[in-house]
Amino acid sequence: MDSNVLIAGFGGQGVLFIGQLLARACMNEGLSVTWTPSYGAEMRGGTVNCTVCISDDEVACAYVAEPKNVIALNAPSFAKFESKIKPGGTMVVNSSLVKSAPSRTDINYKFVPMTEIAHNAGHEKMANIVSLGAFIKTLPVISKDSIVNVMRTMLTGKKAIMLEGNIQALDEGFEAVK
């Protein structure tokens, strides 16, 4: 396997967090993985993204100009990255915030109302986790259990109360993709 995903959204949506969650899960499964944040002149409230590269060989390059897959949590991210995806790639889109119609026929789209799902489940801030659930269902690079196992190690102490909600959000995102 040699794959990658670019995850993009507003600063504060937890884009970098789910990238690390995915990367840690891959690491625990013995895969080679890199996580790289976008960096440069970023500003509060602006868009942020990170790239996770996954391989069962060595990961060659942590930077990806044309990602194979994109998770777009907001409209600016959809606009920015839709055209950059490699043909045959997948775009998992938060349709709660992205109202644009898809413009390509050579990539697969999965529109999931992530913010809505998260809100209805009582955890609006967990739209990122919903998106990760939707992504791993669309592209089974890693099992849901692997993600949950990492959540258990990352959400400890004061954060432990968020664990159940996160697992639920992951489940709902997973189930939202048919």
Binding site: Q20, A23, M27, S32, V33, T34, W35, T36, P37, Y39, V59, C61, A62, Y63
Partner: peptide, 9 residues
């Protein structure tokens, strides 16, 4: 900058 900024196991 790539090595400095990226995460890897």
């Amino acid at each position: 900058g790539m090595l400095g900024q990226m995460m890897e196991p």
